[in-house]
Nucleic acid binder design. Structure first.
Lengths: 321, 321
DNA sequence: CACGGCTCTCGACAAAAGTCAAACTAGGAT
DNA sequence: ATCCTAGTTTGACTTTTGTCGAGAGCCGTG
């Protein structure tokens, strides 16, 4: 981006090393700098996405279970993280896979919608850098005023930064105190445009939240535990981009949802590729709800969750089309 | 492709090493094998395209001269290989760049037309491996019976092999002795289908040949030096996919062209992205002819050639649109 | 103009990765 | 059963790469 004087050098070093296959000392003498500098340039090249090292995620879709799930759930693609077979760091395992899958799905010129949450932020955090041009990352839902980490704008910005893309933020609170105010705010040109632009996305990244007292929306103060319990009483089954959904995967008819500034599920569904990533086993019910609502087309889950989904689909199979 | 038992292991090792960032010894203990084996698996992973290491070719299009050429020649993109600035191996320089550019242009599901020649073969030869699915590489022109290297089918197959793609060969001679026979052969279902399928390609890779005694088509015996001289007399300016073109970039009206089995220039032009690569400075005139005929949309050349093109465009500027 | 603060660069050392020949394995042929 | 070949696997060795702290250049500031 910036025309730093070294940018040129980094690029040349990366080119000689990775494309031509020279050794670092050969590159060093070629460019008349020390080998140590070359090593440093190469690190920078990797960090800025001038060179891209990606591993195929084939193995995780080729899996028999993944194929079965694709069929059972009628999804475009499913990736299953092994979890227990070999254990590098179980917790980040799904996130690493999700990040790779995400980078595989992104193309030049894409417009990407990004939701928020711990999962999304973790993915952003471990995602490697890429040098995509003409990519725009848009925030799918309003912000949280609270100084809570994993804020929607953070997720959006971080992913934009990693991709060397433009980040389109969204300066509205996630939830307002009255429905009138929310309506008025949604009608504001800046906000309206942003919301309208969501259906122009061709890729979305999000997770699904639980509806218990541990839920993200509760922890960040958008709802208190009692309110959440009440919502659960009237059918809340999960959280998508800050909105409560019922077991059918439709927005729950409740005051909270009407006070939220976020991508409508309808416009979300118009996005071509919707990548949903689920890390915790506790998100089984919310995941079922999201799947029922056809909210995602691409899914990344752990092996255990995959098994549960498969068992569930086997026990109560979808009506054949 | 083959379901070798080790494939799984290679993939796991690559995943732990490249995606999770473990060290080789950590991967080794994780998988209960020796570190030496891990090193070997990783090499295989790179060789088979399970991991992809690519360097951005930005630098070479961002170049001022490249931008000027894009404007002057009305091309979608131009890449210029430095050549003299820093010299790793001048001769392969353009080929390495071309291979990178090519890999950047290929996408899943593509259908790729490949011509032949030393340039194309060199590119195929140094191109790194990738694991693309659903890619088909089709041969753009008939084969040469002679035991000459860089045969059309070799170029096609080699590139298909590198991409892990399907190669569609073309079992007809490049040139026949009579026009009648050529016509009859073109009407054969197998051949006709292959020729018809060329317009379905969305990416083509080719170079342009000279029309002197050193020309590829002469060296491989399709034409003898005298015939070539005669063709030059009636306006031959270059060779594209085995066909003679005139200075306007149209197929020259001659017996030879009518005896050739190859992609028609018309169907070639329907291909969305046509990457032309020119290595030798001696190909200036042929290149001009090809450019005049709008035969390519993407161009990779060396710095010296780029300068000549720019000078030429400046001296005799195209009519503004 | 001297002073931090800053980034960039380098030499030297430590760590990691690549390589090779020898040992081992498995399958097929005799 | 025995030999042979082709392909893996490994430990030991060499080469290549990563890293760190020291030093050099550069700029704005007091």
């Amino acid at each position: 981006m910036a025309i730093r004087p070294a940018e040129q050098l980094i690029h040349k070093a990366a080119w000689l090393y990775y494309a031509h296959g020279l050794r670092q000392d050969q590159v060093a003498s070629q460019l008349n700098i020390s080998r140590a500098s070359v090593a440093m340039y190469l690190r920078k090249a990797r960090e800025t996405g001038i060179v891209n090292i990606s591993t195929s995620t084939q193995l995780f879709t080729d899996d028999v279970m993944a194929r079965k799930l694709e069929d059972a759930l009628k999804l475009d693609a499913v990736w299953i993280a092994p979890e227990n077979g070999y254990i590098p760091d179980p917790s980040t395992d799904i996130a690493v896979l999700a990040a790779s899958v995400f980078l595989e799905l992104v193309k030049k010129g894409d417009r990407i919608g990004v939701a928020w949450g711990r999962t999304v932020y973790t993915i952003a955090d471990i995602m490697s850098y890429a040098d995509l041009q003409d990519v725009t990352v848009v925030q799918l839902c309003g912000n949280l005023g609270a100084p809570y980490s994993y804020r929607p704008d953070q997720c959006t910005m971080e992913i934009a930064r990693r991709l060397n893309a433009k980040g389109l933020n969204f300066y509205a609170p996630l939830v307002l105190s009255t429905e009138d105010l929310a309506r008025a705010l949604r009608a504001e040109p800046v906000i309206r445009e942003q919301l309208a632009g969501i259906s122009d996305c061709n890729l979305a990244l999000f997770s699904v939240g639980t509806v218990d007292a541990d839920s993200h929306v509760v922890k960040c103060g958008a709802l208190n535990p009692d309110e959440m319990a009440a919502l659960r009483g009237i059918g809340a089954a999960g959280v998508i981009a800050g909105q409560i959904i019922d077991a059918r995967g439709e927005a729950l008819d409740c005051s909270y949802n009407r006070r939220v500034i976020s991508a409508e599920l309808g416009s979300l569904r118009t996005i071509e590729k919707r990548l949903m990533v689920v890390q915790e086993d506790s998100k089984f019910e919310p995941l079922l709800a999201a799947l029922a609502g056809g909210l995602c087309t691409h899914l990344v889950v752990g092996a255990h969750m995959a098994q549960r989904l498969l068992d569930h689909a086997g026990a109560a199979p979808q009506k054949a089309s």
